[in-house]
Amino acid sequence: MAERMIRILVGKPGLDGHDRGAKIIARAFRDAGFEVIYTGLHQTPDQIVAAAIQEDVDCIGLSILSGAHNTLLPRVCQLLKEKSAEDIKVFGGGVIPEDDIPGLKAAGIAEIFTPGTSTADISGWVRDNIQPRA
């Protein structure tokens, strides 16, 4: 049997409407051979986690440019844990200062990609770090 494709939920937590990055990465993931679900704008952490579980994804990529990352990204990890779904890995990207990255990783975010990162690098990271869940 062919190996199951990696399923990714691309999410836009918070209120910012800057979805250029989210849409580019969603498309790049699709071109890289992953299955992609995009949530659309203005999603609460609860909505994102519910969608991830319902869609049975292997990981969640969160794009955020509003500055609310320190609040919203850890909240997604916490909710996954509460739903016993912490095997869904979470990574993020956007305007996120270097100083905030250690704190986000400590809160359970697997990786943070800052501005200028190529989509090929992000797809490569997914391939190396995410396995389709059984």
């Binding site: 918070g14 209120l15 910012d16 203005h42 609460t44 509003s66 500055g67 609310a68 990352h69 320190n70 609040t71 919203l72 909240r75």
Partner: peptide
């Protein structure tokens, strides 16, 4: 408001 969580005064 709940939707404002983390966003107040940010941008």
């Amino acid at each position: 408001a709940g939707m404002s969580l983390g966003e107040v005064g940010k941008v």
